[in-house]
């Protein structure tokens, strides 16, 4: 895309967020249902989505809260789980280059979840958008709105909402893996195949040997590091 192409608008961000919004709503609905099933009030379920806004961490929070873990222990576990997000901002800004403006990043970066990062990177890689803070606001706001409305509806529906609909429950449960796979396909390149293979293998190995959280961190770091090594060997 030309360096002089117009910057993508807030509306373009909303449109790019459509698959995320479609994917987030049922997952957030499931979270609302699970939270009320675990004994949280609707307000508490909504509060977790409003303030934390990190899906996997929120589901783990339910397990920690209902398991009676001390607040500080729970907080440390969940913070450690989310530390992977430190990689997203620099990766995105580096992809955009010197034109990247971050004046209002204190606001739009709140919404820089796994999926928003993946969608932004994919759209930039395909040349479909030109980075702007308005675009990031649109992308983030649609995803956040979907997450909050899904949580609210799930909490309102209550803990038994999906018990009589196992097929729908199963289909909704596969929405997030399907979204990750589609995002992966959208940024796939031959050069990154070794990165993807190493990241997947490391995730499986460390998850089986230790824990899911450790597996996620290991997969991301091992994959990114392998990208360095493969390219260095190619150049040699």
């Amino acid at each position: 895309m030309s360096l002089h192409a117009p910057k993508s608008t807030f509306t373009a961000g909303l449109v790019t967020a459509l698959p995320i919004a479609l994917g987030y709503f049922p997952i957030a609905f499931s979270f609302g249902v699970a939270a009320t099933r675990a004994g949280l009030t609707g307000l508490e379920a909504f509060g977790l989505s409003l303030i934390i806004y990190a899906g996997a961490a929120q589901f783990l929070a339910l397990a920690l809260i209902t398991g009676g873990a001390p607040v500080l222990v729970s907080a440390f576990t969940l913070v450690a789980m989310n530390i992977r997000h430190v990689l997203y901002g620099p990766a995105l800004i580096k992809r955009v280059g010197p034109d990247a403006r971050t004046k209002h990043a204190w606001a739009w970066a709140f919404g820089l979840t796994d999926e928003v990062f993946g969608a932004a990177l994919g759209a930039l890689a395909r040349g479909k958008v030109v980075f702007s803070e308005a675009f990031m606001f649109g992308l983030g706001l649609a995803a956040y709105g979907s997450w909050l409305s899904g949580t609210a509806l799930g909490a309102f529906a209550g803990g038994a909402a999906l018990q009589n609909y196992p097929v729908i429950d199963a289909a909704l449960g596969f929405m997030l893996p399907a979204l990750f796979l589609a995002l992966l396909l959208s940024i796939l390149s031959k050069l990154q195949l070794p990165v993807i293979a190493v990241a997947m293998a490391a995730t499986v190995a460390v998850t089986l040997a230790w824990s899911g959280t450790a597996g996620i961190l290991a997969g991301m770091v091992a994959g990114a590091v392998s990208g360095l090594l493969v390219r260095r060997n190619d150049a040699a």
Partner: peptide
């Protein structure tokens, strides 16, 4: 490293979600 972070992160999250 930063260029590889995106594909590594998304591949990791896909595997973590299906495991």
């Amino acid at each position: 490293f930063l260029a590889s972070t995106g594909p590594a992160a998304i591949a990791t999250l896909f595997v973590a979600s299906v495991l």
